[in-house]
Design a protein around this nucleic acid. Structure first.
Length: 326
DNA sequence: TAGGCCATCTGGTCCT
DNA sequence: AGGACCAGATGGCCTA
């Protein structure tokens, strides 16, 4: 990509140089002479150029513009089409290339931002990057899950938390998230078409597979899906019914695994939970490496903790605090 | 080979 | 007027 980029930059530069030659004052006169020599159609929308350079209108077009000769032909609407001289064509190309370069930069910026988002959502793998759409979905789920925690002030059990994170995500992404969180997805996601998981009491739960905004589900309260309006962010007061994530906040449910969860899925070494010694060292690998589905899935060895940024470590601490303080 | 994902180009529209 | 933003089109790469 770098090579390609360099090539494009080079082309842009050389074309710009060419243009400077073409557009120099004395060249402009040549350009008017060119007009009769070589006519090309200017791409649409390129109608206003040339006027300031004193180029004359194409007589044919003037005729068309007037249209007062009783001709039944409907007057053509929209910008007049101008003929392209060589110089115009060159300038058009330059403009196009400049616009392309800007657009490329813009997209690179967007991708950079997406990459930083990838690093702060709950799982990050250098080798198995989340797609753009999955990154956005996971981020949305993550924000909502965290806001639920803040709203309720209670720590969720791990399984339901993961369920919430995986809502609407593809199978590979679910694998990745599960890998990060040291869970086999089979333990918290139902088979397609099967019953909802036993840990999901209450009518509000909508299941974990099909991507559906619970806010649009009839009879359900509106969790913060869909919009970012304040009522969605702070949408409920204590004592009122919970949304679809109610099971994840259900204090009665004691999931089989509830180690202190950190944002990046890094558990402290030798964490003890209910007498169980979890082998959470600095690296993953507790669940056999491969998750979800027969013969396939994410290799948890490839999943990297994101420990590079200070704010992530702070988040880590905060999340650990949340899961400890229950 | 089909489908998913991605980068890039392009023209249109809106904004400053 | 020029730049930002957007969506459609296209082609490449990868994987099941």
């Amino acid at each position: 990509h770098n090579h390609l980029f360099m090539q494009q930059e080079k082309m842009t530069r050389s074309l710009q140089d060419e243009c400077e030659e073409v557009c120099s004052p004395d060249q402009d006169q040549d350009q008017d002479q060119d007009q009769d020599q070589e006519h090309m159609e200017e791409p649409r929308g390129e109608d206003e150029e040339g006027e300031e350079e004193g180029e004359e209108e194409d007589p044919e077009e003037e005729e068309e513009d007037e249209g007062e000769d009783g001709d039944e032909r409907p007057k053509r609407r929209g910008p007049k089409k101008k003929k392209m001289t060589k110089a115009r064509l060159q300038r058009f190309k330059i403009r196009r290339m400049k616009a392309n370069a800007r657009e490329r930069n813009r997209m690179h910026g967007l991708n950079d931002a997406l990459e930083s988002l990838r690093k702060v959502v709950p799982c990050y793998s250098k080798t198995q990057k989340l797609s753009k759409i999955e990154t956005l979905r996971l981020a949305k789920n993550y924000i909502w899950a965290l806001s639920e925690i803040l709203r309720s002030g209670k720590a969720p059990d791990l399984m339901s938390f993961v369920q919430a994170l995986c809502k609407g995500l593809s199978q590979p992404t679910t694998n990745l998230v599960a890998g990060c969180l040291q869970l086999n997805p089979r333990t918290f996601l139902p088979e397609q078409g099967s019953e909802l998981p036993h840990l999901a009491p209450g009518p509000a739960y909508t299941g974990a597979y099909s991507y559906q905004s619970p806010g649009l589900t009839p009879g359900l309260p509106s969790p913060p899906y869909g919009t970012m309006e304040p009522p969605h962010i702070f949408h409920q007061v204590k004592g009122q019914p919970y949304g679809p994530l109610e099971p994840f906040l259900d204090p009665g449910f004691d999931g089989p695994l509830s180690p202190p969860l950190s944002v990046n899925g890094n558990f402290p070494p030798s964490f003890k939970h209910e007498g169980t010694d979890y082998p959470y060292g600095g690296h993953y690998g507790a669940v056999g490496g491969t998750l979800y589905g027969p013969g396939g899935g994410a290799n948890t060895d490839t999943i990297m903790p994101f420990d590079g940024h200070p704010h992530e470590r702070i988040m880590n601490v905060q999340m650990n605090a949340i899961f400890h303080d229950s």
